[in-house]
Simulated assay, not measured.
Amino acid sequence: MSQTQNIIAEIVTFRLTEGSDPQAFVAAARAIEPMLHAGGHTLSRTLSRDADGLWTDHIIWTSAEAAKAMAEKIMSAPDAAPMMQMIDPEGVVMRHAEIFHLQE
């Protein structure tokens, strides 16, 4: 059995709402990390922004079910509200992909 079998990458791209402070957004995104780790299904997370202002939240999960369950939970979690309020909902793209190779 491959060590990456069933491991899932969640890739979410988005832009912040007009006037949102990037540092405040990062702080709000970090505030949900205890919730992400509580179930024991989050393996890693990176948050990046390109030169055009497009953000990418990249999370590696133990399974697709865990990723999808947490995505639903975040939508209504009070701890996630500050982060969610800074994300422009118009351009959000979320996708999940099975990982075939994970460099350590």
Rank of each mutant, 00 (worst) to 15 (best):
M1V: 13
Q3D: 06
T4K: 00
N6F: 12
N6A: 14
I7T: 04
I7S: 01
I8V: 15
I8W: 08
I8C: 12
I11R: 14
I11H: 13
I11Q: 13
V12Y: 03
F14M: 13
R15Y: 12
L16S: 09
T17P: 00
T17F: 01
T17S: 02
E18T: 11
G19T: 03
G19S: 07
S20Y: 02
Q23Y: 02
Q23M: 02
Q23N: 06
A24Y: 00
A24W: 00
F25Q: 02
V26Y: 01
A27I: 02
A28P: 03
A28W: 03
A28H: 01
R30M: 10
R30C: 07
E33H: 07
E33D: 11
P34D: 08
M35E: 14
M35C: 09
M35H: 11
L36F: 14
L36D: 11
H37E: 13
G39H: 12
G39E: 11
G40M: 04
G40H: 08
T42Y: 07
T42G: 11
L43M: 12
L43E: 04
S44W: 05
S44V: 02
R45Y: 07
R45V: 10
T46K: 08
L47A: 00
S48V: 11
S48L: 06
D50S: 05
D50H: 07
A51C: 03
L54G: 04
W55A: 02
W55E: 01
W55R: 02
T56F: 03
T56E: 06
T56Q: 03
T56S: 09
H58S: 05
I60C: 09
W61G: 04
T62V: 06
S63E: 09
A64E: 14
E65V: 12
E65P: 05
E65K: 15
A66C: 13
A66V: 06
A66R: 09
K68W: 10
M70F: 15
M70Q: 15
M70A: 12
A71V: 14
E72P: 05
E72R: 14
I74S: 15
I74K: 14
M75W: 11
M75I: 11
S76K: 14
A77S: 15
A77F: 08
P78W: 05
P78E: 05
D79A: 15
A80I: 08
A81I: 06
A81M: 09
P82N: 09
M83F: 00
M83I: 00
M84T: 06
Q85G: 07
Q85S: 10
M86V: 04
M86K: 07
M86C: 09
I87S: 04
D88C: 00
P89E: 06
P89R: 08
P89M: 04
E90M: 01
E90Q: 03
E90L: 01
G91D: 10
V92A: 10
V92F: 13
V93L: 10
V93D: 10
M94D: 01
M94E: 02
M94H: 04
H96G: 01
H96L: 09
A97F: 10
A97M: 15
E98A: 13
E98K: 08
E98P: 01
E98Y: 08
F100V: 10
F100N: 06
F100K: 06
H101R: 09
H101V: 13
H101G: 07
L102K: 00
L102V: 00
L102T: 00
Q103E: 03
